[in-house]
Each structure stands twice: as C-alpha cells, then as structure tokens.
Design a binder for these strands. Sequence first.
DNA 1: GCCAACGTTGGC
DNA 2: GCCAACGTTGGC
Length: 141
Amino acid sequence: MSKQYWLMKSEPDAYPWKQLVREGTGIWDGVRNHTAKLNLKAMQVGDEALFYHSNIGKECVGIMRITETAFPDPTADEGSPWVVVRVEPVRALTHPVTLAAIKADPKLADMDLIRQSRLSVGRVTPEEWKHILKKSETAGG
DNA sequence: GCCAACGTTGGC
DNA sequence: GCCAACGTTGGC
C-alpha cells in the first residue's frame, strides 16, 4: 500500500509536540473512540501524520512518522479493543498551520478535522497533505 | 430497537 | 463559561 497521511490531536497540556521531540519516540495512547481506533489500525509503518495541538494553540505543529503498527493500549483494561501506534517526530513545521487557516481554505474544507471536529485521529488526503505543508512554509498560512 | 438523559470533546 | 456535536447508557 502506498503511503497514507493522518492527523492526530493532542492537548498540549497532556502531551505536547515538544515532549515527543524530547523523548524521540512515543506511543499514541488514550484513544477511546471507535472511528479513531479504526484509523489507528489502518496505519502502516512509514505513514506520516500531522501533530495537532487541540484546545491550546489549535494548530498543526509538526510531522510524525509511524514506526510500529497498532497493538493493545497498555493504558486500557485488558481485553478492551483500544490500540496504540508508535510514532517518532520527523520535523517541526516551519510555521504552524492554524485551524483558522485550514477553515479559511476551500481546498481544506472537507478535511476530517473540519467535518468531524471531535475525531482525534483523522485521515488526510495526499492533496490536503501537500497543501498544508505548502502553507506551513509561509507565515500566517 | 428506540430515544431521552447524560458525559466528553473541543471550538468559540 | 457556554454550547454544538457526538458517543454511551439505561429505561421502556
């Protein structure tokens, strides 16, 4: 399968981008939504994901790479369906891409992030991915 | 199986 | 702090 792209949300209070960079690797735990879980299970090693800061910041701040496919979430009860993937930071975006900038861009209006605002792990199409990365090269989107 | 009540997420 | 969206729970 060709490379897939994702967007994963974290509240910076709980788990900020800086922490992932500092630690060099991390597992994406705590997902308790079935749609998000299906997305985690669809991830392949080498897929890339945007790290999005929800609540505080409300912006995409960096790029991660999936390094290990889904396995049971160690923070969940045994026998539960919840899974995690392992990720590592690739690089920070040159400039963060804010939710406001994404909403204001017709090319990005159909993103999971916009259409289903509570979904913490969403798909990003290759077109959306390219477009967001391009926006991140210029301040203010 | 339906639906009201309730809890959580996350933007504003 | 409020509210919309959405998921879950429990009574019937």
